[in-house]
């Protein structure tokens, strides 16, 4: 692409981290709490895709934590592993036990479900984001 939109570029530099922060917030608090790995992941995809539209697909690819395929692989691996702790407690695979963590006088509920959600988040970001960037990349040459 030869034409650049300077306003959009300046705007996007700030918007990208904001969108990612919003996606992490959604990851921890979905529509109806707790957790929205999928919708959070889609939010992150939206961040990557809009970054790619303003700059280009290669730039957006470089701003991902790692290559999209690897991101998706790590994500699904996390989701699979999140079911394993249950086995040690004699529960069936993928049962998600809950604990409370006392952090600075604040009771926090923690569970392996969070790990699962994080896995979904990364998997969605990796697969959907990766294919979005690929699509944008493949039509960039024609524009």
């Amino acid at each position: 692409m030869t034409s650049r939109a300077h306003m959009a570029e300046i705007f996007m530099r700030g918007l990208y981290p904001l969108l990612l922060i919003a996606s992490v917030v959604i990851l921890f608090r979905g529509h109806n709490a707790p957790g929205g790995g999928f919708i959070g992941g889609l939010m992150a995809v939206a961040a990557s895709a809009s970054y790619a539209l303003v700059f280009n697909a290669t730039n957006a690819l470089n701003r991902l934590p790692c290559a999209p395929v690897r991101l998706a692989g790590i994500g699904i691996l996390l989701a699979l592993l999140s079911g394993v702790p249950a086995i040690s407690q004699g529960l069936p695979y993928l049962t998600h036990p809950w604990w409370t963590i006392n952090l600075f006088q604040v009771e926090l509920a923690a569970s392996t479900v969070m790990l699962f959600d994080l896995g979904v988040y990364l998997a969605v970001w990796g697969t959907i984001g990766g294919s979005c960037l690929l699509l944008i990349h493949s039509i960039e040459g024609e524009a």
């Binding site: 690897r70 692989g73 699904i76 691996l77 695979y93």
Partner: peptide, 18 residues
């Protein structure tokens, strides 16, 4: 669930180490 976990985990390990 081992028949689906073993190849799935292998597929993912292969993805991560591509």
């Amino acid at each position: 669930v081992a028949p689906l976990l073993v190849p799935l985990a292998t597929a993912l390990l292969c993805t991560v180490s591509y």
